[in-house]
Simulated scan of single mutants.
Amino acid sequence: MRMTPVDIRLTASFLAVAFLAAGLLGAAQPATRIPPEVIQLTQFGPALGVGVAALLWPGRVRALLAGGAARSGSRGALLILTAPLVVACAAAAYAVLGGDGRPISPNAPFALIAAAQLLGACAEEIGWRCLLQPLLRPRFGPLGASAAVGAVWGVWHVQVFAQHPLYAAAFLTMAVSLSVVMGWALDGTGASRLLLAGGFHALINIGMLLFMDEESGTVTPMLLFGLSCLTAAALWTWVSTPRGRAAPSAPAPDRLTAIMEDVR
């Protein structure tokens, strides 16, 4: 299915504002004296992109943000559980290789960091997973749209390209993989997408802040984190892919749904 002209213009406008606003906010952050470990102002770029799109195409943006019908909470719970598992696997592998996997002591109160990280993550995810993902899904499907959004999300972090090429490649792998995980988990959900995506994103950020030192530009922890995220994306894709072709009148259940029914 092709994207409509309105959706093409909406996508282009959202991306232009998200990238431009992030650059301007990032340049202004030092003047605010807000520590980046608390929140990065660039995270509000996508939210501003959504705001501009909503002014230009209010009805279309409202429909996209509303999402689909409410679904079972099992996928949301598994999504939130995936975040600490991904961080734990990467941190454990880093510690085995001699890296410093011990928790660091942030300069700001942890409660403030956690609240700010959730706010910043939701400011990003209202654009990436709540607007851009459903815009691209009819054209590319859940997996293709998730990968595309993840690639754009990774490139949006332009500062990573100043690092070692392996670091940048691992970061892009991480971004695409995490986008695939969220894409499968949130596909077809309604307004709960924002809190679930924001919570998952915030847990990933907090885990990286506390247990990894990839922010220094060190290649090894980012490589390990990218591989951990890639493994999670592969598992989510496997359990979310239909077992076979569905009859026209009834969609085939995916493996995750079957697994959850077996557990019950």
Results as ranks from 00 to 15, higher is better:
residue 155 V to L: 13
residue 64 L to D: 06
residue 264 R to L: 09
residue 91 A to G: 11
residue 229 C to G: 15
residue 158 V to L: 15
residue 23 G to S: 10
residue 154 G to P: 00
residue 241 T to E: 06
residue 16 A to D: 09
residue 218 T to E: 12
residue 66 A to Q: 14
residue 62 R to F: 06
residue 8 I to C: 12
residue 99 G to K: 05
residue 122 C to G: 02
residue 66 A to N: 05
residue 14 F to W: 08
residue 239 V to I: 05
residue 190 G to W: 00
residue 20 L to F: 15
residue 139 R to E: 14
residue 48 L to S: 10
residue 95 A to C: 01
residue 238 W to C: 00
residue 134 P to H: 04
residue 28 A to M: 13
residue 162 A to E: 09
residue 10 L to I: 10
residue 74 S to N: 13
residue 250 A to C: 03
residue 10 L to R: 14
residue 183 G to Y: 07
residue 99 G to T: 03
residue 118 L to M: 06
residue 105 S to M: 14
residue 139 R to G: 07
residue 211 F to C: 09
residue 134 P to L: 02
residue 251 P to M: 06
residue 147 A to G: 06
residue 127 G to M: 01
residue 93 A to M: 15
residue 7 D to Y: 13
residue 164 H to T: 13
residue 118 L to P: 03
residue 264 R to A: 13
residue 105 S to L: 06
residue 256 L to R: 10
residue 250 A to P: 01
residue 117 Q to A: 11
residue 117 Q to T: 04
residue 198 G to P: 08
residue 157 H to N: 11
residue 231 T to W: 04
residue 182 M to E: 04
residue 251 P to Q: 03
residue 1 M to N: 04
residue 72 S to C: 11
residue 62 R to M: 09
residue 104 I to R: 14
residue 177 S to F: 01
residue 87 V to A: 11
residue 18 A to F: 01
residue 154 G to M: 03
residue 156 W to T: 07
residue 127 G to A: 01
residue 263 V to Y: 12
residue 67 G to F: 05
residue 133 Q to T: 05
residue 80 I to K: 03
residue 240 S to W: 00
residue 254 D to Y: 03
